[in-house]
Structures are given as C-alpha cells and as structure tokens.
Design a protein around this nucleic acid. Structure first.
Lengths: 192, 192
DNA sequence: AATAAACTGACGAACGTTCGTAAGGGGTTG
DNA sequence: CAACCCCTTACGAACGTTCGTCAGTTTATT
C-alpha cells in the first residue's frame, strides 16, 4: 500500500528534520513518486503530518498497554523491564523520537492540536501506570514514606531522562545513565 | 548595539522555530531593519546562528560556574538549590531551551559542529559537579553503597527530567515533578 | 467504461543571498 | 572653517532555488 509507504517515509523525515525541515519533494522522491502524487492520498502537508502523528500515538499507546498487560510481577521487575523495553524500542523505531520532538517543539500553527493530543496521551499513560504503584504500596514493596503518586511522577521523570540521553545519541552514555538513574530511583522508593 | 539586538531577537526565533523555522525576514523585521542589512553584521544565517549559539553556551556555563562558586554547603542544599536555580533561570531566559533544542535536534548541516560543542559543554559541567559528590562522599553525607559517579550521573538525569517537563510547558506539572524527582533522588543517595 | 493513481506543467510565495548605491559621521587634509 | 575621503550602515532591486499546492492529462486496473 502506497499510503503506508508514504507515512513510513514521512515519519522518518519529520523525525529528522521536524515539520519545517521535512519537504514533500524529498519524501515523495524516497517513496518513488512525484510530490504532486502525494495529493492523491493526503489533502496537504498538514494532513500527512497528522496521519503520521496519529499512527505514532496509537503505536506508542499500544506498546505501553501490551507491556503492562503481562502477568503481575514484583514492582522492581515491572519498572525496570518497562525502562529497558522502551530503550530497545527506541533503538528500533522512530516513533518515540518523533513523538518527543513534536511534543517539545511543535510547529506553531499545529501547536494546540498537538498539545491536546499529548495531554491525552500522558493522562492515559498515568492511568495505566499508577495502579502498579498503588498495589505495590499495599503489598509493602514500597517504603511507606513514598506515596504512590510521587513514585509514579518520579518514575516518568526517570523515563524522560533516559529518552533525553538517547535523543542525544550516545548509546554508551545512555546505558550508564539508565543504570545510575534506576539504581538511585529504586533505592529511593523500595522498602527494606 | 544593533548586533546585540539582532542576536537577542534571533535567539528567540531560533528557540521557538528551530533553525529551519526561523526566517531572516522575521528576525530583521522585529529588529527594525531589512533582512539585507543583517549581512552587515553576519556573513549569513549560519554565522548568525553560531554567534547566538556561542553566546548561549557561554552564559550557560557562566551560570553553572557562578552557582557552584558559592561557599561550601551540605550536599542536599547545593543540589536542590542547583535544580531550583536552573528552574528559575529557565522561566526567565530562552538560553537553556535554545540549547536543549539544538542539542537534541540540530540542523543536519551543522550537526557535527553543534555536537562537538555540546560534548565539551557536558564534560565541563561534569567536571564542575563531580567534586561536590566526591567530597560529600568523603564527609559521609552519601550512602556508602552509592558511588559519586552514579550519584552524579543520576543527578544530571534528574536535571534533564525537569528540563523536559518545562519544555512541555506546564508549570504546575513541572513543580510536581521537581518535587517528586528530588524527593526520591535524595532518599536514594543520602546516608541515614 | 469507470475509477484510481500516476504523470506533466505551472503557480505564487517565501527562502537565503548578492549587488550596487545612497546617506551619515569622523578624521584628516587644504 | 570648509572640503575631502573613507568607512559604516542602511536600503531597493533582483537573483536563483525551493517550497506547498492546484489543474489537467495519461496510464493501468478492474
């Protein structure tokens, strides 16, 4: 399907160049068609962008849902596995990088729509994550001084910290940061 | 000085639109001159960009140096004050936001030069920060299980996590994250 | 025959950049 | 004091390119 191919190539171009830096000429050339032919599938650049954006958001959410659907495990395993799973996915796919870029630096004229989408995404992610902390708290896996909410918020910060280091591109540094962040984070919330 | 004014306006435009999204026409219009007149001060867009970049990098480094120059304090105060000081600065100035944007998503044809600059910056920052952790470790302020290096790396991750939330723009969320991240981080490294 | 998907051609607008030039101020000469 | 030159700074006009987009036409599929 040509439409899928276009979205796939466009994702890569939007990720590397941003909205302004991605040109329809380059995208269509890589797909193997003329840029005017893109208009058989999308009404314009904005619609192509949002098609890509929706694809990415759906896959991101699916990834999180699928991971958290697994059988209940000790919190330590769930959380570290989550970080490591996301790390591996980040290496393979442009999805997360695209999503971060557009969340942080949206093109001005699409800003509002993007921000709304991202807020919804973050809320949904919090809703999926927090129960794990709450049941872990009930089970005595977490230190009683650390509330489930604080632990959740701090965990998403660890996740973002890892993303940021990966954005920057140095794999060795990323692993070192993941190790250090997780080590300190888990010491900070565990009950022992 | 017109050159300063240009750099000041250009900083704002580069921060909000990125390299590709910032146009010389818009910048010059806001300064109050025609775009051709920019060429009296800079040989082109790239040189203007690097002039801004160097200004920003210098101010960023100066901020860190000045803060850490203060009289020795307990590690807890130094680190939390560092986070909070950066938070306040972030609200006031575009410097950090510009720096993050260009570090994460540099324009392709300037990528190498930018990355080199950023690496130097990160190294210098590590060099300034690590001694605080090492002397704190010697003084018994940190838990013996946590190495100074791990604590340093995890701390810069906390800092980046805060930046990221501020990038996203919601102040309430940023403060909540700062609170949670710091609370968990300090529990993770303190000696008690 | 009908429909979808590719094409050619062209559009106005914006981009960064270059050229030639005019206005202004300062310093050195008559 | 006036005349000259020079250098800085601004500008209008135009350059060639690229941008996203629109219209009309051919090709291929069913």
């Amino acid at each position: 399907m040509t439409s899928d191919k276009i979205r796939e190539v466009a994702l890569r171009h939007f990720t590397r160049g941003g909205y302004e830096g991605a040109s329809l000429a380059d995208i269509s050339a890589e797909v193997g068609i003329k840029k005017q032919s893109l208009y058989n599938y999308f009404t314009g650049k904005d619609e192509l962008f949002f098609a890509v954006f929706r694809d990415v958001a759906a896959r991101e959410m699916l990834f999180v849902e699928e991971y958290l659907k697994q059988n209940p495990l000790p919190l330590e395993k769930v959380l570290y596995g989550f970080l490591d799973g996301y790390r591996k996915r980040y290496e393979r796919e442009d999805d997360t990088k695209f999503f971060l870029r557009m969340a942080f630096f949206p093109p001005r004229h699409l800003r509002q729509e993007i921000v709304e989408y991202c807020n919804h995404h973050l809320d949904a992610m919090g809703t999926l994550l927090e129960p794990f902390f709450e049941s872990a708290a009930s089970a005595g896996e977490m230190h009683p001084d650390v509330s489930a909410e604080r632990a959740t918020v701090a965990f998403t910060a660890v996740l973002d910290g890892m993303f940021v280091e990966m954005l920057y591109g140095d794999m060795e540094r990323s692993l070192k940061r993941l190790d250090a962040s997780w080590y300190v984070y888990w010491r900070g919330i565990r009950n022992s």
